[in-house]
Design a protein around this nucleic acid. Structure first.
Length: 200
DNA sequence: TAGTTGATTCACT
DNA sequence: GTGAATCAACTAC
């Protein structure tokens, strides 16, 4: 197992990274407690041309500022006032592409995850869906704009390799307002894994 | 300065 | 299957 290097995230192809990140392991350290989950579902957001992205048209604000960082940083966004959505910023500085982590499979610190979620880790809902996955790993606004190569939050290569036959792509979820971009197959997940958010 | 809305989840019927 | 929770950013005055 090895921590992914900054160069990995500098790839300008967000769609490739969204697929490649499947099967890798996301770690967080909070209050000295380490938890981790295998990434089982992602979505690609390809920047200023993507109507579903917060950075569409080059919009820039205190919220989207995180996406303009160089690849290898985190972007945590509070949605519906309740849910923390965790994004991996990719590409170069000022090129706001990102990969949204939609769900993970509990991997480490299961008891901590259970307490955070107040449900059994064997329950599929414990980490399926962007809000749940973030909560399971203890991700909140304090993880916004963190380097993914530091020691608070990082990603390791599990060594598990998934071929294209293990990956399924579908249209993204919950972005119908993005018009024609809502239909692009930019959502990716591992086949035969129970820890994915429900199809829509 | 005020009104609208969303990259959602959970509890309830 | 339906609806509430809840707030920062966006849009319009």
């Amino acid at each position: 197992m090895s921590k992914l290097k900054p160069e990995y995230y500098q790839n300008t192809d967000a769609i490739f990274l969204a697929q490649d990140l499947l099967g890798k392991i996301l770690f967080t350290r909070k209050n000295g407690e380490v938890t981790a989950g295998i990434i089982t579902e992602t979505e690609a957001y390809f920047g200023t041309e993507d109507k579903a992205s917060h950075a569409y048209g080059g919009r820039r604000s205190s919220r989207t500022e995180a996406m303009y960082q160089p690849g290898g940083f985190s972007y945590v966004y509070l949605c519906y006032g309740i849910h923390h959505l965790f994004n991996i910023v990719v590409s170069k500085e000022d090129d706001p592409k990102s990969v949204l982590v939609r769900s993970v499979e509990p991997y480490k610190g299961l008891e901590i995850i259970r307490k955070r979620r107040n449900m059994a880790v064997t329950d599929k809902a414990v980490s399926s869906g962007p809000g749940s996955a973030s909560k399971a790993l203890g991700i909140d606004m304090s993880f916004n704009k963190k380097s993914l190569t530091g020691d608070e939050i990082w990603i390791e290569d599990s060594g598990l390799l998934y071929g294209s036959e293990d990956i399924t792509s579908t249209p993204r979820v919950g972005v119908a307002y993005a018009q024609e971009h809502a239909l692009l197959p930019l959502r990716f997940y591992l086949k035969n894994n129970r820890y994915i958010s429900k199809n829509k």
